[in-house]
Each structure stands twice: as C-alpha cells, then as structure tokens.
Design a protein around this nucleic acid. Structure first.
Lengths: 199, 199
DNA sequence: CCTACCGATCGGTAGG
DNA sequence: CCTACCGATCGGTAGG
C-alpha cells in the first residue's frame, strides 16, 4: 500500500492554471471583492459551480494568484542579482527585472493583484506572502549596500529602499505599453535619478 | 417666488459629514466593494436605509470621499507651493504637506480611498477626480522646473515626477505613526535622496 | 465538471 | 430618519 499522492494529470493542472490566470486578470481589473466566481468561471468557459472542483474557496484563488505573483518577481530579480556584474549594472538589471514583471504581459495581472488585493487574504495566506516579500526586500537591501560601498549612493537605509520600491511599484498606475517608453528606458532613468553619475 | 435652494441646516451637513468620514475609514480599511451600506450606517448609528436620505447611491459616497481627498491634498500642497521661499525649501514644504495628508490622522483615510478605490467610481466622477489630479501634478511640475533651474536636480521630466509621486504615495503602504519617524524626517530624507547636496 | 439549488446578504425603495 | 421589505446576486454544495 505504498500509495503516493498521484501527480495531477496534465489536463488537470492546465485547467487549474487557466482559472488562476483568468482570476489574476479579473482581480487586477475589478478588484477581488467585485469579482464574481461566475466571472471567473465564464472566462474559462465553465459553469459557476465548477471552479470549486479546483479550489475550495474564492480566497484560495486569490492566494494562488498572489503567491505566483511574488514568486515570479522574486525569481526574476534573484536571477538579475546573481549576475556577478558590478553594482551599478546589477542594480539596473534588477530594476529591469522588477519592472518586467510589473508591466510585462506575463506578470502584470499577478503583480497588480499582489500589490492591491493582498489585504483580502486571510491571516495565514497573508503571512505566507509577507515572508516572501521580506526575503525579496533583502535582495534590494544587499544591492543598496554594495552601491553605497562603491560610492554610488549616499544612503542605503530602509527608508531609501522603500522610496525605491515605491517609485517602482507606482509605475503600475501610470505606465502604458504604448506610451513610447520601454521598460529598459524607465529602469535607466530611475537608476540615473538615484545613483551618482559615472565619472 | 425668488426661491433659492435653502442652505442645509447645520445638523444636516453634520450628519452627512459623519457618513462621509465613516465611509472613508471603511473604504480605506476594507475596500469599497467589500464595504456595506450597513457597515457605514452602523458606524454612525443609523439603520441601513437611512444613509440614502443623504446620498442617492453608494457610489456617490465614494465620490464624496475621493473629492474631499484630492481637494485636501491639493489645498495643502498649494499652500506650501505659494510660500515664496527658495526652491529647495519650497520643495520640502510640499513634501511635508503631501505626506501630512497621506499619513496624518485627518486625511489618511480619504487619501487611501482616493489612491486605491478610485477605479470604482463611475466614468463621470472619475473624470472629475482626474481633472483635479492633473492640476495637482502641475504644481509638482513647476517646482521640479525651478529646482532644475537652480541646479538642484538633473532631470525634471514627467517620469521623474512620477517616480517622486510614487515614492510619496507608497509611504501609505509602510508608514506607521509609531515607527519612530516623523513626517518631517521622511520628507527630508526624500529630498536628500533626490536633490544635490547643498554645497 | 455540470445541474440544480440554498441560505445569506446586498443596494436600494415605499411609506410614513 | 426608521420600518419593513424587495429583487438580484453571491459563494458555496449535493449528487451525479
């Protein structure tokens, strides 16, 4: 009787992923509370009762979206942070990675849900997200320290980091993909604003 | 028959203001969609039907909160902008004024609702808010120009302004009044981060 | 994953 | 401003 939990069939995980993606878009657009199970079901051509075959509650869907959001940002920025380049180049690569997740087609609905709807998570899920966010911020703390040691920034305190993340996360409110600015340009501009010019 | 609209009695406007204040707190805490008319009524000791004596719809309450929010920020920052001091001092006074509205007890629920719930406004009300926001941003555009002419900042472009407002508005997410930092200290720190040191 | 459904709750209203 | 109420909608479930 050495039964292990059977790995889910490909179709099953696909349908589940479909639901999560549809939920991320609707949560990002209308907000969690204003999004209906029927909205989500309709977006993936199911009837209203069927999403509950994949998720126990609506909150579990939000949890899945938020965790995928912070997970993707974490992974992308971690990759940039580990590039082994000098501080300024590493910093700019991290800015690009973060903005790619927030503004790019792949991640933006997950990121927007993470940023704006996390308060609707229950306490347990909120704690999960906070833990991942903390480890995320540690990466920024580290580059800021490196930048300071390289003499590229005057202050690497907590508040500086929060200003930086604020400027980054606020782009969600105003960035339009058709606005003529690329993510790379925006990253470069923020870097110039914060760091001393390369002499 | 020269009847003018009778000015509302003091009690009437007080009760209305009570509702708006209670709504601002609940919208800020739980979000617009998750806040119930019964929540609001209960917070001002009314029965569930009574708020509709003062407002036609729930959306009208949101509109009142949002307009009061942007109005208060606008007024406070305009006062600071008109101080006639040199650019750096004016800039710092504007930072303090903005942060006072976002983080101070008076304005924070209105500001949070404005920042996070405006998408639930109908198109007409949204246009009203956007118009006020535009005129608000113009004030920042002007100081940034003055700062550049004074050689205190390298770039006064639109994106710089949006980074600045992002750093400011994001404070709502992390600032705790009991955290040991005053609004004035935070304003000073942001000013130092963005402007060249006074030589 | 669908059908059929339930109890709860919601924004809003009529009449006083 | 309250009482009493309405139709609509919501998250979730039983049974297949």
């Amino acid at each position: 009787m050495a039964t292990k939990a059977r790995p889910p069939a490909a179709e099953e995980t696909n349908r589940r992923a479909d639901i999560v993606r549809a939920a991320s878009r609707l949560f990002a657009q209308k907000g969690y509370a204003a999004t209906t199970i029927r909205d989500i079901a309709g977006a993936v051509d199911m009837r209203s009762g069927s999403p509950f075959y994949h998720f126990k509650t609506k909150q579990d869907m939000l949890r899945a979206v938020a965790l995928e959001g912070i997970g993707a940002i974490n992974a992308a920025v971690a990759r940039a942070a580990a590039s082994g380049k000098p501080p300024r180049a590493t910093f700019e690569a991290m800015l690009r990675a973060h903005l790619d997740q927030l503004l790019g087609e792949q991640g933006r609905d997950f990121a927007a849900t993470l940023l704006h709807e996390s308060r609707h998570l229950d306490a347990a899920a909120q704690a999960e997200v906070v833990a991942l966010k903390d480890s995320y911020e540690t990466m920024w703390q580290k580059v800021l320290k490196d930048l300071k040691q390289a003499g590229l920034i005057a202050d690497d305190s907590r508040v500086t980091r929060l200003f930086l993340l604020g400027a980054l996360n606020w782009t969600v409110q105003w960035y339009r993909p058709d606005g003529g600015k690329s993510v790379a340009q925006i990253a470069k501009q923020l870097s110039s604003l914060l760091l001393k010019p390369a002499t």
